[in-house]
Every structure is written in structure tokens, then in C-alpha cells.
Computed example of a mutant assay.
Amino acid sequence: MELLKIYPHDNILIIAPHPDDECIGPGGVLSEFPDQCSIVVLTDGAVGQGHGNSDKCTKRRKNEFILEMKSIGVERYYWLDYPDGMLMNYLNCLDGFNLKQYTKIFVTGENDGHADHTAAYRCAIHALEKQNVKNCEVYQYEIHSPIQKPTHYLDITEYIQRKEELIRFHQSQLEIIPYDEYIRVESIYRAIQNRMPGKMIEVYKKIISFGSLVEENSLVENELQKFKVFYNVLVDWLMEADSEVVQNWCTNNQITEVIIYGYAELGKILEKQLIKCGVKVAYILDQKITQTCSEVFIYKPGNENIRDIPVIVTAIYYYDSIKNELEERGYTKIVSLQSIV
């Protein structure tokens, strides 16, 4: 491995899928060279470490991140606010973000063990290729899974305490996994592994050539991420079963009639819940299913007579594109099932 060299003229960008990856991964770079660093956070961080109110989670994590940035004096940070847990669905999210101004870019590894982290890597490569960026060094950093055959290291022995302090701003994430302890052990292990006992290091893998973004398993990973989102929503729903969350949402919003978009598993469960609490389902929209077991009429989008009542989208992974499609066709009240449960 080679020593990672940061020069005074370097303009550094850290790409963080979630607010905390920037310090858990390249926290040594951030601690030692804060004046040269900019950070772009790709998702809203709504999922966090478990299940609960996504809006509260997003707000808390943003506040933690901002406090971290203030503590280290970093003013150049940006939020893209894509849905946490769905980044594989937005692989072009960095295409409009100017990457040509940076000399070094750090991003999560392509095999880091988290779908959003894999997606962040692909987003970066996609944008670098589209913007035809040539004079920039790109490094993968590790969080969940060790980088295989790292090419560079940074000695963070003098900065390990600062890195731990940055991580501790993210208390919402430390409630389950003590990342501050984790990175200390990891940095010691990486140093011993590379015959540097008594030191603490971060390791990176330099991307030698962007090439073309050809990933044979992209579709598979996209499906895995979609089902993970489905699982999270279903668990949230089941955890709230005793509180009648759907009925409460309808009551609080004075809703007596809805349209359901998507009639797979979540759509069928939602229909039963709505009937149970006395809310009428005007009709169901689904791209694939024709009229079947439901007593409510099912239309393919485009064949229905639009009514000005709320549409609950159960195809949550594709919510943004579905919302745009429905708005173009005249629907005005559109909500994701994820935001309800």
C-alpha cells in the first residue's frame, strides 16, 4: 500500500450515502484536512438504525450532521435528500453535481455490504463518466465490509480522538452500533495487518480506471433493495398494528374515500384495513393486474375516470416516478404508504 498524500492545493469531496458515513469512513481525512473538504449527503437518512417516525429520524440526523460540521468548521456541505434505502433507484443522482472542481473524491466501496453504499459508488462512477472527469483521483472507503486489496492508507494515529468525537455527534446511530469503538478497533487492526503496530490507519482503494459502468448484478441488487424497503414498511406497519395507524391517518386527515395505487401484497393489506375502518376505496390502479379478487374495480393507469380524492401509493419503491406520472394525469392528492405507517 502507498501513503495517501493530500496536498495543499487538493479540493476534496466526500460522498456520503447517509449523514454519518463521512466520519465513520474517511473521518481521518475530514479531521486532518477539514478546510479542504466538501461533503455531499445523498439520502435523507430517514431509515436510520431501525423503525419509527421517518420525519423525526430525518430531522434528528440532519441536526446531528450540522452540529458535526460546525464543530470541525466545514461550511461546504450539500443535501440531495433522496429516499434512504432506495438509492439504487436513483443512480443518476450525482449527474447534475459538478465533480470537475475536485481533485480527490472519496466514496463508499462497491462491495460495502449496504445497498445504498453500493449505489453511491455507482452514482459517483456514472456522474464521473457523464461529466467526462479526467483529472481527479477517486478512492473507495470502507464502513461495513473491509475493502479487498486496498491501495492506500492514511495514518490517523494523531486524529483518532477527533474522528471518534465526530462520530459521537451521531447519537441516533450509536444507540445500536457503537461506531466510535468500531472504527478504533478497525484502525488498529488495519495497522497491525500492514505491519505498523502502535499505529492507527484508514485504508482506501483507488479507482484506476472508470471504464464503462457495466454491472451484471445491478438488476439483482436493485430488486434486493426494493424488497428491503418493502420489508421495512411491512415491519413498521405490523409494529403499529395495535394503534390502528391507517384509521388514525384517515381520521386525522378527514378522509372517507381513497384510491389505491398498486395491488400487490401491501395494496391488498391496505384495502382490508380501509374496509375495516369504514373508508371507501373508490378504485384501484395497477399496471399489471386486471380485475380479480377485489370487489373494487381495478384499472390500468390511463383507463380510469380521475376523481379528486387521495391516492395512496403502495408501490413505495417507485413512489417518486409514480407521483410524477399521476400529477401529469391530473391527480393532486398523492401520498406514499410509507409516510402513513
Rank of each mutant, 00 (worst) to 15 (best):
Y182E: 07
G278N: 07
N252Q: 09
E271T: 10
R162N: 07
D116A: 06
T103I: 03
I340V: 14
I340S: 12
A264F: 05
F97Y: 13
I167R: 01
L67E: 10
E137K: 14
E181G: 10
K149A: 12
L87P: 03
C123H: 01
G25L: 00
I306V: 15
L154R: 00
E158V: 06
V341G: 00
V47E: 07
Q173C: 11
T251W: 05
T58R: 03
C293G: 10
Y189T: 11
H114Y: 09
E215Y: 12
V74P: 01
G302Y: 06
P17A: 09
I340K: 05
S54K: 09
L3P: 00
G27C: 01
T256K: 11
A124G: 02
Q131F: 01
F65A: 01
K276E: 13
K130E: 12
L4W: 03
C123L: 02
A124E: 01
G27F: 01
G302T: 04
Q140D: 09
Y121R: 05
N135M: 06
M88E: 06
K134S: 12
K5V: 11
L154H: 02
E186Q: 13
N11I: 09
I334C: 12
Y179E: 02
N248Q: 08
E129S: 15
E142G: 08
Q193R: 13
E265M: 09
D20F: 02
S31F: 01
L3M: 06
